[in-house]
Amino acid sequence: MKYLMTTAAVLAASAAWAETPVLTVYAGDYFTSEWGPGPKIEAGFEEICGCDLEFSTGDLMPRLLLEGSRTKADVVIGLTTDVTAKARATDLFAPHGQDNSALTLPIEWDDEVFLPFNYGHTAFIYDETRIETPPASFEDLLAMDDDIKIVIQDPRTSISGLALVLWVQAVYGDKAADAWAQLAPNILTVTKDWSASYGLFTDGEADMVLSYTTSPAYHMFAEEDFTKKAAIFPEGHYFMAETVGKIAATDQPELADAFMAYVMSTDFQTLIPTANWSLPSALPEDQWPDGWAQLPLPEKVLFYSETEAAEVQAQAIETWRAALSQ
């Protein structure tokens, strides 16, 4: 009996020793698709960590909130700026430990817990072969001929839709309801998520679509199609970023820290543009991949901090709903 137990202990110990440590990373659902950023990030990190990076994809926030302290995650990647407040409130996260001053975002970032790994802005995308005189400002957009149809996303079910109502709120403030009323005749329909909207646009059903300033990059670099453009407005565009967070109770703290450092590395940052179709969070513009620096980007960037957003969000959504339900 004693002999058996010793053997078992030796076997267990050698198994543990031989086993490659696993870093479990929860990621947004799109992440691990063959063209998503997941596979490249996994390969890049495994080269330097001597570990096995395992992505577990799904609905991030519902899953974290449901699992609570039983979560298997060591790191969570893909938490958007609109959910950081909720994520913070779970107390599951530890400080990211990276230097925020190394970030190259168009806004100040002083969050010690959530580290942005990409960014973009909301923008209306059009096809220049179909719209000859695109709106040059938000005012132009509101005054557009009623025949030009836009498709947007629902702020109650989509993060880009939510960013849009915050964008209108940031530009028009108390006059947001009027702005929505002016835009209403141009809104062909509202979809549940970004994908459906974008599909309606590429199928030619809608003339413009609410998307991101980086959307034309996909068409340019993946399809060599230079007709899709983002309308840039001097009133400013709403900022959105995706962040990484380290789980405080992780059983792989060193690996998690190494991953956070990897996120800030040039290797990681240079693969973000074409793998994620978004802008890198910590890479000077002159190091962006070929052609990306020519992408038209807004001069002015609008963003509500999570506390400000919490104050205006419900009212902004209700304003939107009431104006479009007329």
Binding site: D29, Y30, T32, S33, W35, G36, D193, W194, S195, A196, Y198, G199, T202, S215, Y218, A222, W277
Partner: peptide, 9 residues
């Protein structure tokens, strides 16, 4: 849906 979400319509 993942493909749609990565522009691969």
């Amino acid at each position: 849906y993942r493909l749609m979400g990565s522009y691969r319509t």
